[in-house]
C-alpha cells in the first residue's frame, strides 16, 4: 500500500491488519514508551488547504511518536489559500523531500489527484477531501467500535450502526459506510431525504427517515455534524425542526440498547445534532475517538512508510 486515498482501495484483511497494528501501537504508547524510532529520518508534510486543527494535530502527534520530522503547511499563511495551484504546491513538497503528504482539502478528489500526478513521489494520505472521503476517521471509528463492542473478534460482524445526519455532504459518512460494511456491520442511514445523495440506493446500507424507529435496534449511533451553511440552503426548514427529528437528546438516548455507544467525529454542534447531556454521557465515546485517532494514524503512517505490502503474521 503506497497511498491512503479511499476505503474502497483496500480489502477487509488489510483493514483489519491496520486496526490490529493500531491496537499494538496503542499498547506500546500506553506503556512507558512515548516515542518510537520507527520513522526516524522520514519527513511528513501536513498539507492543510482547509482548516482542521484536530485532524492536523492528531496526524502530527502520530508522526512525532514515530520520530518522523513533521512540516506543517497549513492554509492560513500558505500559498494554497492564495490560489497557488495544487501542482505547484506538490512540486514544492517534492523539492522538500517529503516522504509522505497528509492532505486535507476542500475539493473532492484532491488527494487522488496528488497521488496520480507525476508532481511528487511520496505517499499521499487523504485526511479528508471535500465531500468525498475521510478514511483515517473511518478507521479510528471502526477501531473504537471494535474496542467497545467487538467481543475480541477482528471484524464487526453482527453489529449494527446508525449514521445520522448530513450524509450528502459527509466524507466521514462515505468512508464509514464503506469500511463498516466491509467489516461486516449493518449500516443504516438516518437523515432527511434532502440530505441523502441521489444514487444512495447503490450503497450497502438501509435507509430510514425516522430516528426513533432506528435507535432501539442499533449498537452504535454515529452523529454527523450539521454545517451552518446547510441552514440557508433549504435542506431543512430550520435548526429547531432538524433537532427535533434528527438530534440525539437524552430522551432518545434512553431508548438505546444496553451497551450501545454514541459517536461523533467532531467538532460537535451541541444543542443541534447532539445535546450536551448525550455528548457528556457514559455512552459517549467521543473523546476516546480522539485518543484512538493517534494510534490509528500511527498505524497508517507505519504501513505506508515502511517497505511494500503488509505481511501477515510473524517473521
Amino acid at each position: 500500500m503506497r497511498h491512503l486515498l479511499s476505503i474502497a482501495d483496500f480489502s477487509k484483511a488489510e483493514a483489519i491488519s491496520i486496526l490490529d497494528t493500531a491496537n499494538e501501537l496503542a499498547r506500546v504508547s500506553d506503556g512507558a514508551v512515548k516515542k518510537l524510532p520507527t520513522l526516524r529520518g522520514r519527513t511528513i508534510v501536513n498539507l492543510f488547504a482547509e482548516d482542521s486543527t484536530r485532524t492536523r494535530i492528531s496526524f502530527e502527534a502520530a508522526a512525532k511518536r514515530l520520530s518522523a520530522d513533521v512540516i506543517n503547511f497549513s492554509a492560513k499563511g500558505s500559498s494554497v489559500s492564495k490560489g497557488e495551484s495544487l501542482k505547484d504546491t506538490a512540486m514544492t513538497l517534492q523539492a522538500m523531500g517529503a516522504d509522505a503528504v497528509v492532505i486535507r482539502h476542500f475539493a473532492s478528489g484532491a488527494a487522488q489527484r496528488l497521488a496520480d500526478s507525476q508532481w511528487m513521489s511520496g505517499s499521499v494520505v487523504n485526511a479528508g477531501d471535500g465531500t468525498h472521503e475521510h478514511p483515517s476517521q473511518a478507521l479510528l471509528d471502526a477501531f473504537t467500535i471494535r474496542k467497545h463492542l467487538g467481543l475480541g473478534k477482528s471484524d464487526l460482524e453482527g453489529l449494527s450502526v446508525a449514521i445520522v445526519g448530513d450524509v450528502l455532504h459527509s466524507r466521514v459518512a462515505r468512508s464509514n459506510i464503506l469500511l463498516l460494511s466491509k467489516l461486516g456491520a449493518k449500516v443504516v442511514l438516518v437523515a432527511p431525504p434532502t440530505l441523502l445523495p441521489v444514487g444512495v440506493e447503490s450503497w450497502p446500507v438501509s435507509i430510514s427517515y425516522d430516528l426513533d424507529s432506528v435507535i432501539p435496534f442499533v449498537d452504535v449511533v454515529m452523529m454527523l455534524r450539521v454545517q451552518q451553511e446547510r441552514m440557508t440552503e433549504m435542506y431543512f426548514p430550520n435548526a429547531r425542526e432538524y433537532s427535533r427529528y434528527f438530534g440525539l437528546n437524552s430522551d432518545r438516548m434512553k431508548s438505546m440498547k444496553p451497551g450501545a455507544i454514541v459517536m461523533h467525529p467532531g467538532p460537535m454542534n451541541r444543542g443541534l445534532e447532539i445535546s450536551a447531556e448525550v455528548a457528556d454521557s457514559s455512552r459517549s465515546v467521543i473523546t476516546e475517538q480522539v485518543t484512538n485517532g493517534v494510534s490509528v494514524r500511527m498505524a497508517i503512517l507505519y504501513v505506508l512508510l515502511t517497505g511494500g505490502a503488509l505481511e501477515a503474521g510473524g517473521n
Binding site: S108, G109, D129, H132, R171, P197, V198, G199, S202
Partner: peptide
C-alpha cells in the same frame, strides 16, 4: 457522483 462526493 454520490460515491465521489462531487456535486450532482
Amino acid at each position: 457522483s454520490a460515491r465521489l462526493g462531487l456535486k450532482g
